[in-house]
Design a protein around this nucleic acid. Structure first.
Lengths: 144, 144
DNA sequence: GCTTGACTTCAAGTTAACTTGAACTTGTAG
DNA sequence: CTACAAGTTCAAGTTAACTTGAAGTCAAGC
C-alpha cells in the first residue's frame, strides 16, 4: 500500500533497466526521492513520464530533445493529460515527414532500383530530411 | 576521359566523405584499384554501389546488413538492374512495418496522449518491432 | 628546388544511450 | 548472526558509423 516505488518496481513495470533509470535521472529526465537508506523512491507518476520518454524515442527524438520537452511541464503539480498533450505539437509533423520519406523510398524501390536509374547522377531518392538523432556527423547529406 | 575516378571525384559525386569511402572499403562494401602511386582509383560502377548503400541506410539497414546484401551481387560482371533489384526483396516489408509503426505512433499522439491513457499499465503504443540498427543493447523492449 | 594540394596509413577521438564492473552499504529471511 | 539480494556511486566499456590528427608520400606549378 506504500505509494512509493523502488527502482526495481519501476524497472519491472516500465521495461526500462534500472541502469537506464539512473541514467535518465542523471540527465534530468526523471527524478526520485530518497528513502532514509539512500535508496531511490519513485511516485507512480514517474511511470507515465517514462512512457512518454519511450514513446518519444520511438518517434526518433533524442534524450536531449525529450528532456527539453519534459522541462516544459508545469513544476507545481502532477501533469494532467492536457499538460501532456501540449507537448506533442511538433511531433506530428515530424512523424508525417518521416512517413513521407519512407513512402518515397518504398516507391523508389520499385521504380528506381527496378528500372535501373539508381545512379548518383540522376536519382534523388535518398534525401537528407529528418534523420532524427544524428546531427553534425556522418556524410548523410544527399543533394537531390 | 580517363574512365577511372579518384577518391575526391567519387566523394564529390556521391556526397559521401572520402574518409567514409575508405571506411566502406575497409568494411568490404566497396573496392578500389590502385594507381602506381598507391592512390585509389574507382570504376564508375562504384557510384551506383554507393547510391545503393546510402539508400539502404535511409531505410534503416546497418552497414553490416548492407555488406551482406552486396555480397549477393555476382562477382563476374558489373551488376545489371536485374541484379540490383533482386536485392530489395526483404526491404519492402521492412519499410511497410516501419510506416505502420509510425502511423500507430501518430494516432497514439492524438488518442493516447490526448485522452490521457499514456500509462505503462494500459498503453501499448511503443512496441519493439523493427528498431533497425540497434540490437542487443538498450532497454527498448516494451511489452504491449 | 620548393610549395601546395591530394593522397596514404594507422591510431585515437566522437556521439548517443546505455551497460558493466568494482567496491560498498542496506534490508530481509532464516 | 549470517547470508544474500537489492541498492548506491563512480569510472570505464560498448556499438555504429564515421571523423580527426599525425606523419609521411607523390604530382604539378612556378
Amino acid at each position: 500500500m506504500d505509494p512509493m516505488l523502488t527502482i526495481t518496481d519501476v524497472s519491472r513495470r516500465s521495461g526500462v533497466a534500472s541502469s537506464a533509470l539512473r541514467f535518465y535521472e542523471e540527465r534530468g529526465l526523471i527524478a526520485s526521492e530518497r528513502a532514509g537508506s539512500g535508496h531511490r523512491r519513485y511516485p507512480r507518476s514517474v511511470l507515465r513520464r517514462i512512457a512518454f520518454i519511450v514513446f518519444a524515442q520511438r518517434i526518433g527524438l533524442t534524450l536531449e530533445e525529450i528532456a527539453a520537452e519534459l522541462a516544459k511541464l508545469p513544476a507545481d503539480h502532477v501533469p494532467t493529460r492536457r499538460d501532456w498533450s501540449r507537448l506533442s505539437g511538433e511531433w506530428r509533423k515530424r512523424i508525417d515527414e518521416r512517413i513521407a520519406e519512407l513512402q518515397r523510398l518504398r516507391s523508389g524501390l520499385t521504380e528506381c532500383i527496378g528500372c535501373g536509374c539508381l545512379s548518383i547522377d540522376r536519382c534523388s531518392l535518398a534525401n537528407p530530411a529528418d534523420m532524427a538523432g544524428r546531427k553534425g556527423q556522418g556524410p548523410r547529406y544527399w543533394l537531390g
